[in-house]
Structures are given as structure tokens and as C-alpha cells.
Amino acid sequence: MLEQQPNNDDEIQSVESVLDALRDYGRPPENGEIQPSSSAPSVEEEMVSYGNKTLEEDAAKQEHARNQKWKNHFNTAFIIAFWFLWFCFILMVFALIFHWVMPDTWHWLKPEQLDKIKTVIMAALVSKAITNHQEKLSKFN
């Protein structure tokens, strides 16, 4: 199946016809009834102005796309890190509870490891409690 390629000659002719129409804009008709406006910008000025606006708009769109892409990547990384840390926290809680509930012969954690797990769990819980308390206090002020 052959795809039709755009004809560059047609595009060039189309652009040239548009430019010719723009050049003729502001010229008086043959009978001389309408005088050209002295305040009307030249075609070249119009093209430069249009080009500048187009470039500025394109630059703004690309900058927005880059910023949005960075925000999306950061958001994804944050979500992955959050769920990974949440999984680790839940795993530590279950390991600690399982260690407490099971008979001594089933214990696999050393006392130092238990202390580290308790410290991490307590730090997380205390941090959450303080954050909740601060939020309640800030609502009253």
C-alpha cells in the first residue's frame, strides 16, 4: 500500500500565493478610490510579528510540556517511594507482632534487631501523632 507524499511544490505555491495576497493587502485598487493606510504595517513586519508570536507560543508550550513531564516523573517516583516505605513499615509491624506472639523457639530476630524495628515503628507513630496534633492546633488559630 503506497502512502501519498505531500507535494512540496503545491505547498510552496500555496505559501507564495498567500504572501502575494498579503503584499497586495493595503494597496489601493486600480481605480484609486481607497488610499493605502500609512499606519498599516508592511508584509515583512507582519510576517516577523507573526513569526515572533508563533515562536513565543511554541516556546511557552514546550516549556509547559517539560515542566509537566518533570512533575509527572516526580509524582510517579514519589508514589513508588511512598508505597515501598509503606510496605516496609507494614512488614516491620507484622514481623514484630509475629515475633511477640510466637513461642521462643520460633524467634528469628536478635534483640538488637527487635530494638531497631521498635524504634522505627515508634518514630513513625510518634511523628504521625505530633503531625495530627499540630494540624488540630493550627485549625484553632
Results as ranks from 00 to 15, higher is better:
Lys61Phe: 08
Asn132Ser: 11
Arg23His: 10
Ala77Leu: 08
Val15Ile: 12
Lys61Ile: 06
Leu85Trp: 02
Thr54Met: 02
Ser49Trp: 05
Asn75Gln: 13
Trp70Phe: 11
Met92Gln: 10
Ser42Gln: 03
Gln4Thr: 15
Met47Asn: 01
Ala59Trp: 02
Leu125Lys: 11
His73Ala: 10
Ala77Cys: 08
His64Lys: 11
Pro103Thr: 14
Leu125Val: 10
Phe140Cys: 01
Gly26Glu: 01
Val43Met: 05
Glu3Gly: 00
Trp83Ile: 10
Lys128His: 06
Gln134Ala: 09
Leu55Tyr: 01
Lys69Glu: 11
His107Val: 13
Met1Thr: 05
Ile80Ser: 05
Lys139Ser: 14
Lys116Leu: 06
Arg23Trp: 01
Glu11Gly: 01
Gln62Tyr: 13
Gln68Met: 05
Gln13Met: 07
Glu57Val: 09
Asp58Asn: 12
Thr76Ile: 09
Met1Asn: 07
Phe94Gly: 04
Gln13Trp: 04
Gly51Ser: 06
Glu30Gln: 09
Asn141Tyr: 09
Ala65Glu: 10
Trp106Val: 11
Asn8Trp: 07
Lys61Leu: 12
Pro111Lys: 06
Gln5Trp: 01
Lys71Ala: 12
Asn52Cys: 03
Leu91Tyr: 06
Gln113Val: 03
Lys128Ala: 12
Asn7Lys: 15
Pro6Leu: 11
Met102Tyr: 04
His73Leu: 12
Phe94Tyr: 05
Glu11Ala: 11
Pro28Val: 08
Ala40Asn: 02
Lys69Gly: 05
Glu44His: 06
His73Thr: 15
Ala129Lys: 03
Leu109Asp: 12
Glu11Thr: 15
Pro41Trp: 02
Pro28Thr: 08
Gln134Val: 15
Ser49Tyr: 03
Trp108Thr: 15
Pro103Arg: 10
Asp24Lys: 07
Gln5Thr: 11
Glu3Asn: 09
Pro6Lys: 14
Ile121Cys: 04
Pro28Asn: 11
Arg66Ile: 15
Leu137Cys: 05
Ile97Ala: 02
Tyr50Asn: 04
Pro103Cys: 06
Leu125Thr: 13
Pro111Asp: 06
Pro6Ile: 13
Ala77Glu: 04
Thr105Leu: 05
Pro111Glu: 05
Glu44Gln: 09
Ala81His: 07
His133Asn: 10
Ser37Lys: 12
Ile97Met: 00
Ala21Thr: 02
